[in-house]
């Protein structure tokens, strides 16, 4: 028992360091970029010219229809054969961004569509153009509805970054693997890694609840009891 605790305490700094330097930045950057891709994709699907909307649909189809791990392998190990060589971190960043973009584009498309048409008309009736209506009237209302499903994507992403271990990114899970390789204590190390992921996603869950309350403070929504 004491041996386990010592092992945990000894390995904690390297695991936290890996989380701090790789897991967290990778998650934040690919979620931020992925959200932008998702918003753009959603707007194209809803308002863009038909040929472009088809391209976006194709993108979503490919990304959602193939395993994330396979996508990462394609980008990191496959593309060099086509002359595109990427370092592990940028390869992972691209893979996760494309993934987040595809899933969130569907969420954003749905929540934009859920704002009643009358809100567009009210915005137009006071002279707003499309941009102003979108930015000032539609997106703030869509945002409240989008928080829970986007939080789903965000939390999935934190855990999915462990797949980057397979393309040599020395993130949290890979750090645990490396310590296991020298200590032969898989149970302890993987439990420890799992706990760190749990802490990270718990922080996001808490953030989600606060954001929901903040964005929904104008009322008219059913709120979660806890």
């Amino acid at each position: 028992m004491l041996h386990w605790l010592t092992l945990m305490a000894d390995s904690l700094p390297s695991l936290l360091w890996a989380a701090l330097v790789f897991t967290i930045p990778l998650t934040l950057a690919s979620f931020a970029l992925g959200l932008m891709v998702g918003l753009l994709s959603a707007v194209i699907r809803l308002f863009g010219p038909a040929p472009l909307a088809v391209v976006v649909r194709f993108y979503v189809w490919i990304i959602r229809g193939t395993p994330l791990l396979v996508q990462l392998f394609l980008i990191f190990y496959g593309l060099p054969s086509a002359g595109i060589v990427l370092d592990a971190f940028p390869a992972a960043l691209i893979g996760f961004t494309l993934n987040v973009g595809a899933y969130t584009s569907e969420i954003i498309r749905a929540v934009i569509g859920s704002v009643p048409k009358g809100q567009w008309e009210a915005a137009y009736s006071i002279g707003m153009n499309w941009n102003q209506a979108m930015r000032r009237t539609i997106l703030p209302q869509a945002a409240r509805v989008a928080v829970p499903p986007l939080a789903n994507s965000f939390i999935s992403l934190v855990k999915d970054t462990s797949l980057a271990a397979a393309i040599t990114v020395p993130e949290l899970f890979q750090a645990a693997q490396r310590i296991v390789a020298t200590t032969y204590e898989p149970l302890i190390l993987y439990v420890e890694a799992a706990l760190i992921y749990l802490v990270l996603s718990s922080a996001l869950s808490a953030l989600q609840l606060r954001l929901e309350r903040r964005l929904g403070r104008y009322g008219g929504f059913l709120e979660a009891k806890s």
Partner: peptide
């Protein structure tokens, strides 16, 4: 023109006065 709708269509995320200000601030 200005328009009044059957179902009001106030912007729910803005207070009463912000609703009235919206056209002046954003558009004008």
């Amino acid at each position: 023109t200005g328009m009044v709708f059957q179902n009001f269509q106030l912007f729910p995320h803005r207070t009463a006065i912000e609703n009235v200000m919206e056209g002046l601030v954003t558009v004008q």
